[in-house]
């Protein structure tokens, strides 16, 4: 018996959301009186993996096959299912991402497991296995019972605190058997987004809307983001008009973020935009219209012109550092 956590990486580092999934898995394993085993796929330094012990892993299984660096979803799903079988996992936990949305669905079919996405809390085990998940793009929650022997959970970002308070753990090589079709997609090329901070992973997000008037003014958003080490986002019309790339579009039909701090500048706060940001811990709204609906969803508000407020805010943040 065990709890298996898939520790998704990005460019050789284990993602923060994976550490949260580990902390979640470790807490659940101790409730179930069993151990939390982590699985990592692709190239990592040994120290990056042994450090997962600090977050609660009792050991790390490592599929070091270099083909995994291209994140082939089917192969990752095969590896996760194989590791789950090898360790007789009762629960498989993954951080929610575009990759795990796909991988978990294959794992669930392979393991005949019920799967629940966007989990926000540890399960209630008093009768059956019930987990709370966000639905309607964060507008509501569903307490969901999983009736299958094996359960697969995808954890929403920021649902759990990842705190390093344990010791390093052993790392074991793990070599699942792959099927030919696991590597059936041919990668032609990769286009990297500018900016080093991944929007779904960012602790702070600075987002701009149509109120910024045009792409030539985005340096104002970028300067503030840089001072805050924040990711940058935008509203849908902004990406529709190609002022910003599509992967920055936040909301119902775009990226869902749950950072500690979301700063919205010149965004009116349409319900479809709010749907993507309503699980942020703190929301700051800067808008020249005091009636903008976004203020109703905000914790702090500034009624003012973005072109005056942004440079001042950037300076004030810099002064703090």
């Amino acid at each position: 018996m065990s709890v298996l956590i898939y520790a998704e990486g990005f460019e050789g580092k284990i993602k923060k959301s994976s550490l949260e999934a580990l902390a979640y898995g470790a807490a659940l394993a101790s409730k179930l009186n069993t151990s939390a085993i982590a699985l990592a796929t692709g190239t990592f330094q040994a120290s990056e993996l042994s450090a997962l012990g600090k977050y609660g892993a009792s050991k790390v299984l490592h599929v070091s096959d270099q083909r995994m660096d291209e994140t082939p979803v089917a192969a990752i799903a095969s590896a996760i299912a194989a590791a789950a079988n090898a360790g007789a996992a009762q629960v498989v936990i993954m951080p929610k991402s575009a990759l795990t949305d796909s991988a978990s669905s294959k794992v669930a079919v392979k393991l005949k497991a019920g799967v629940v996405n966007n989990v926000v809390e540890l399960p209630d085990l008093t009768s059956g296995f019930k987990v709370k998940r966000a639905i309607y793009t964060g507008k509501a929650f569903a307490v969901t019972e999983i009736n299958t022997p094996i359960k697969v959970l995808l954890l929403r970002k920021n649902a759990m605190n990842a705190i390093a308070n344990g010791n390093d753990c052993p790392v074991e090589a793990f070599q699942p058997s792959f099927e030919a079709t696991d590597f059936g997609l041919k990668r032609l090329k990769v286009e990297k987004a500018e900016g080093e901070i991944l929007l779904p992973e960012a602790e702070i997000v600075v987002s701009g809307g149509r109120g910024l008037k045009g792409p030539e003014n985005w340096h104002l958003i970028e300067s503030l983001a840089k001072a805050l080490h924040a990711g940058t986002g935008c509203s849908k019309p902004v990406s529709d008009m190609d002022w910003r790339p599509h992967h920055e579009h936040v909301g119902q039909t775009g990226v869902k973020v749950s950072p500690n701090l979301y700063i919205a500048v010149g965004i009116s706060g349409a319900i479809q935009h709010l749907a993507g940001v309503n699980s942020s811990k703190v929301i700051v709204v800067i808008n020249k219209d005091p009636e903008a609906p976004f203020f109703k969803a905000a914790d702090y508000g500034v009624v003012g012109d973005a072109f005056d407020v942004l440079p001042q805010l950037t300076e004030a943040v810099k002064a703090l550092n």
Partner: peptide
């Protein structure tokens, strides 16, 4: 396909 930090172009039968 959208991937973490960018876009991946793939070919498949």
């Amino acid at each position: 396909k959208e991937i973490e930090g960018g876009k991946e172009y793939l070919e498949v039968a």
